[in-house]
Simulated scan of single mutants.
Amino acid sequence: MTPPAGREGGQGPSELVLRVASAALLVPLALAVIWLGGWPFAALAALCAMLLLREWSVIVGAGNAYMLAAFSHAGVLATLVLAMMSLVPWALALLFALAAVVFLAGLAFGRAPERWVSLGILYSGLTGIVLVLVREGHFGALLILFLFLVVWVTDIAAYFVGRRLGGPKLWRRVSPGKTWSGAVGGFLAALVAGYGVALAGGVSSPLAWVVASGLLSIFSQMGDLFESALKRRFGVKDSGRIIPGHGGVMDRIDGLVGAAILGYALALALGAPMLDPAAVLVQMKGL
């Protein structure tokens, strides 16, 4: 979930008011659920995953495939239940098997939308699973808040720096509004945020937090660009209209998706346990 500042493109005063009002309601709710953790947080992660998959299906032209929707949504929900029960290998195995079945079915019947839905299953399912694992691991509430903070700071700084400085476009064909100045501004702001969190927490190695915030900022911007590329591929402006002033859920948490999934993959590559990706920071004496 991102706060009201939004992306580098322009917006009118009325849209900004809607963004602020929506964020004023949703952000406190999200923070409360993060604090509670457990099944309430898992339910929020599951809701986000279900909405992501629904919006993805609509974008790729499979919005009216009701049997496919029921099958894929039920499967993704089952993977999140398994993750919450600490059965992560089973959750991941089920998720990839589900995606493979949908892809092969689309291939067999010559239906391109179904093949695209298989990627959406991974996109939404991995997001939910990773969020659950981070929250249930060591320092779960702190790490989830840190993840949200980096994504928010990156998004807000990229918006204001990009509007202020302008300059060369980051990837004009995919996202004409984003600039290199905004991307760099978001990255630098995330580094500052990471250092601030380390100082506030009195950790022994602030560098670990700075490095983590920089990587997550890059992953967040990659997630943003990925969603932009998907929408441009299918000629869609917004992923949905469920959040007033913000568009769809995917429009708001695409950066969080990128930071969560790619951050989790990097943590595993660095030797973190599958059930506790935050252990990397512990190993680096960052906690």
Rank of each mutant, 00 (worst) to 15 (best):
G128R: 07
G202M: 06
D224F: 00
F146E: 02
W180S: 07
T179Q: 05
V153E: 02
A158F: 09
A189Y: 12
G186N: 06
G196A: 15
V132D: 02
A212E: 06
F139V: 10
K178I: 04
F160H: 10
R233H: 10
A158K: 09
S213V: 14
G177E: 14
A208G: 07
L191A: 08
M222A: 13
K169H: 11
G214F: 07
S213F: 13
L215I: 15
L147V: 13
P206K: 11
I156G: 03
L170V: 01
S213Y: 15
G196T: 12
E136T: 14
R135S: 05
A229Y: 10
P176E: 10
G167W: 07
D224A: 00
Y195T: 07
V150P: 04
F139D: 11
L225Q: 01
A157M: 11
V197I: 14
R172T: 14
L188V: 15
G137F: 12
K178D: 03
R233F: 07
G128V: 12
L142W: 15
G167P: 02
L191S: 06
S205V: 15
L207A: 14
A141M: 11
A229H: 07
G214P: 01
G137P: 09
R173Q: 13
A212N: 05
G185P: 03
R173G: 15
G162R: 02
L230N: 00
R232Y: 03
G125H: 02
F146W: 14
L170M: 06
L165M: 09
F148V: 12
I156Y: 06
A198N: 02
L225H: 01
S124A: 14
E227G: 00
M222Q: 04
I129G: 00
L149G: 10
I218D: 04
T179S: 15
T179M: 08
A183T: 05
S175E: 03
V150N: 08
T179A: 03
K178S: 04
S181R: 09
A141H: 10
A212C: 11
G128Q: 08
I144Y: 08
F187G: 06
V130D: 03
G196K: 11
F226D: 01
A208S: 12
V192I: 15
R172D: 14
L188W: 11
G214S: 08
M222K: 04
K231R: 05
G185S: 06
A193P: 05
R232E: 03
Y195E: 11
G167Q: 04
L145K: 04
A189S: 09
E227K: 00
L216Y: 13
V174G: 01
K231A: 00
L131C: 06
H138P: 06
V211M: 13
I121V: 15
Y159V: 10
V211G: 08
L133I: 04
F219G: 02
D224Q: 00
G125S: 03
L147D: 07
I218P: 05
L147F: 15
R172E: 15
G185K: 07
P168I: 11
A190H: 08
V203D: 06
G162P: 01
S220F: 09
S228M: 03
G201P: 01
R172K: 12
K169I: 08
G177N: 14
V184W: 11
E136Y: 12
F187L: 13
G194A: 11
G182T: 05
L188R: 05
F139N: 08
V161A: 13
R163V: 11
L230H: 02
